[in-house]
Simulated scan of single mutants.
Amino acid sequence: MNPHSVRDQLLYPHECFRALRHEQPVYNEQAKFWEVSTYEDVHLLVTDHELFSSDESKFTPASEAPALKSILNMDPPRHRQLRSLLSQAFTPRALAQLTPRITEITQELLDAVEKKGAMDIIDDLSYPLPIIVIAELLGVPIEDRPQFKHWSDEIVSGEYDELTGENRELVLERVRQRVRKTMDEINEYFRSIIAQRRQQPGEDIISALLAARVDGQELTEDELLGFCALLLIAGNITTTNLIGNALLCFDEHPEAMVQLQQRPQLLPSAIEEVLRYRSPVTILARFAASDFILKEQLIRRGQVVLGWSGSANHDPDHFVHPECFDITRSPNQHLSFGHGIHFCLGAPLARLEAKIALGMLLERFTRIRITHERDLEPVNSTFIYGAKHVPITFAVR
């Protein structure tokens, strides 16, 4: 996909998505990978795990194994077995137990900025909140959170403003090497934590996974490391950008913020609309499990197929007036958390954190406005959608 302006595309991609849906709904990028952009095709991609595999190791040499080995790149039956273990941390009962702590953290973060009348939603709220929560769940030192932020940024960022012309493959290779280096650092960190938990188990997810058995067998070290890295990275990126994107939406549509302050019971519906309108994750990847035809295009076994969930969420064939930001929209079957067996495991936690954080923000502060003294800088990533910083001013109620 060739953007008109990479910077504009990253923050305002919908014109590009509209062109893809209309002109090239099944698009081949220089014979390297396929892109699908309609709701129907993206839904098929993430739902039919027999047609579209998540297991890269089936189609690539062992030397090119994925940097992150987790349930994200597994197929059944192993995926089902491991997902059932981790899902216990995100049951309604488990989330109910987390609610007081998430509320306490949010209160402390807002207390720290209240007298200033200004804050950066990302730096002061939507980044530290999920990082603290996931660090406590994993049982790792919260003071290491600057390192967690660095690792997360390294995983999702890229040199995408250079992804045109003859240097494309060189740029992609640099990105791959940086991601692998970052994953090596993350794995080294968690190997040390895992070794500590083997000696001194605690009340945390890592200790629970060490004690878990699947068909009588312990989890392998690679599986343990995959869980830890996935929780650390995915556990903060989605919430960080969901809350930041909510402020972008409310700033563009101030009537929605007024409506929420008058009717806070609409907040869950508003969060779903933010997820649809400005999805924190805009792209999902699979591998063709066999040769097949999609909209008259032959897709070969092993080829990468990318589904633009951000585009699917604006498909007028599925959503009425998709370009309208409507916090009362119902139904709202967006694909921002995927669908099917790989539906985002942490979606309930991300929704809970966003509900508490946004609810408290709107309850405590009024006249909330983004300061536009400088242009917002997008997260430099092809699959994460949001702004690096969202500075706001506010008045205390």
Rank of each mutant, 00 (worst) to 15 (best):
A289K: 07
E221A: 04
S336L: 05
R7W: 11
T220L: 08
P391V: 08
K355Y: 06
R276C: 09
R213C: 04
G235D: 08
F394S: 12
E29F: 03
A19V: 06
H4R: 15
G165T: 10
L267H: 14
H389I: 02
N28H: 07
D222P: 06
R83F: 06
E166G: 12
L231R: 03
V46Y: 07
A118I: 00
E221C: 06
S70E: 04
P77C: 10
A395N: 15
E35A: 13
H334M: 00
E323I: 01
N167E: 14
I327W: 13
I186M: 10
Q333R: 15
H334R: 03
Q303W: 00
I341F: 05
E143M: 05
H14Y: 08
F148V: 10
E377N: 14
H321Y: 01
L306Q: 11
I132W: 03
T239G: 12
L72V: 08
C344D: 05
E353D: 11
T239N: 10
Q303R: 06
I105S: 02
E363D: 15
V179N: 11
C344H: 04
G244V: 05
A118T: 10
Q259D: 12
E203L: 03
H49V: 14
I131T: 15
R18H: 11
G307I: 05
R78W: 02
I71A: 04
L225Q: 09
L72K: 00
P100G: 12
D317C: 13
L125A: 03
A195P: 03
G386A: 09
I122K: 09
L110N: 07
L210P: 02
R301L: 02
E188C: 06
L210K: 06
A195W: 07
E50F: 03
H150R: 15
L230F: 02
Q196V: 01
A19G: 05
A289T: 05
F343L: 14
V214L: 08
L266I: 09
T106C: 05
L232T: 12
A387Q: 09
L85Q: 09
Q265F: 00
C16K: 08
I243W: 03
C344P: 02
H150Y: 13
T38F: 01
A289V: 03
L98A: 11
L68Y: 02
L44Y: 01
T182Y: 09
I243L: 08
Q30T: 09
A89P: 01
L68F: 02
L137H: 10
R176C: 00
P61S: 10
M360F: 03
R93W: 00
R168H: 14
I155Q: 01
E169T: 10
H318Q: 12
S192N: 12
S207M: 07
I384D: 07
P3F: 02
F394I: 11
N167Y: 01
Q259P: 03
I293W: 06
H79C: 06
G340V: 08
Q297S: 11
A195E: 14
V305P: 08
I243H: 03
F365L: 13
T182D: 11
A285E: 12
